[in-house]
Design a protein around this nucleic acid. Structure first.
Length: 322
DNA sequence: CATCAGGGCCCTG
DNA sequence: CAGGGCCCTGAT
């Protein structure tokens, strides 16, 4: 699908704002059929809003202290003014453009050990690039497997049901809509080697088409109510709900449960040790960062994956098992 | 060659 | 509320 109509506008996020930290998350696994692309100061993705699919390009036109973004939306038909306004609001929500991180930054400044990291990424947001449905699909292919297989599953699904879009000389992929899978049999999904997740994906798609869940309504609810609603979805348990509360709904106080594989990485990151009890990790972070715990962890987590781009970190390579 | 666990969840007893 | 089973794949 070629997206040749475009509209652009500028937008000024609340300072401080870290462009690259917000628009590129190196800890996310890279599959072959790319959903987004990034280079310093520039970002591209397909963006679904309602039933429509847009190309989105965001360029950095400011600094950390005086942030400004140049935003371009691409579509296969003309834009209305109202539509542009809605899209503007949508990206403001997804990338937390107006978030006030003053209190969090104050806590970070008092953290002797990790302040250098927080300073380096000052103004970074916890971005939710995709819709709730899209994030759920990604979360489900991550369940109970290794990263390599998650990549294979997502690529297979995208190749079969995804949409290829072209804009600004970029060719990217976008995840299908829930209704696109309604008529697809469980066997057809199983043929893509997603295993027992086929059932999850099907039932989940139906939960969306039958409006059992409303992504936008959940934005108005508190954390516990949102969690409750998410857990009702077939295939969503405590861990997937936790990821979504943070990634899609920007709740920062979601550092409660620590899975064994995460515990190993946190132990190295926070203590330089192989294995620190999960309870100690949680207590230490909660004590210092309180309701911003998950956000604080996000900064340190992404930082080590940025470092991984340029230096070998043997213990990390071992833990992420590509 | 066989066995096993993996970036969880559902279901049963 | 504990524990078995689940798809498939690479590691051992």
């Amino acid at each position: 699908m070629k997206l040749s109509h475009k509209r652009n506008f500028n937008i000024a996020p609340k300072a401080p704002f870290h462009f690259d930290g917000t628009f590129h998350k190196p800890s996310h696994f890279p599959n072959k059929l790319k959903l987004d692309d990034w280079e310093p100061g520039k970002y591209w993705q397909g963006l679904r809003f309602g039933k429509r699919l847009y190309g989105l390009k965001i360029e950095n036109a400011g600094t950390v202290a005086k942030p400004k973004l140049k935003v371009l939306f691409y579509s296969n038909r003309d834009f209305t003014d109202k539509e542009v306004e809605q899209l503007k609001n949508e990206i403001a929500w997804r990338f937390e453009l107006y978030a006030d991180l003053k209190e969090f930054n104050g806590l970070a400044r008092k953290d002797r050990r990790f302040y250098p990291i927080f300073k380096k990424w000052l103004g970074m947001r916890n971005a939710s690039q995709y819709t709730l449905y899209e994030l759920l699909i990604i979360a489900i292919v991550l369940q109970n497997t290794t990263v390599r297989r998650s990549q294979q599953m997502l690529d297979a699904l995208l190749g079969k049901f995804g949409t290829k879009i072209e804009f600004d000389k970029k060719k990217l992929w976008a995840i299908w809509l829930p209704e696109d899978l309604e008529e697809v049999s469980e066997q057809k999904l199983r043929d893509l080697k997603v295993g027992y997740r086929a059932k999850f994906i099907r039932r989940l798609s139906h939960d969306f088409t039958s409006r059992r869940v409303d992504e936008y309504k959940l934005r108005q609810l508190d954390k516990e109510s949102t969690k409750e609603a998410l857990m009702k979805l077939y295939g969503v348990g405590p861990e997937t709900a936790r990821i979504l509360l943070f990634e899609a709904y920007h709740h920062y106080d979601t550092f409660e449960h620590i899975a064994p594989w995460q515990q190993k990485i946190y132990s190295r990151l926070f203590y330089g040790k192989k294995s620190v009890p999960a309870k100690k990790i949680r207590d230490d972070i909660l004590k210092r960062y309180g309701k911003y715990s998950m956000l604080a962890v996000h900064y340190i987590w992404e930082d080590v994956f940025w470092r991984r781009k340029n230096e070998k970190i043997p213990w990390l390579e071992k833990e992420i098992r590509l």
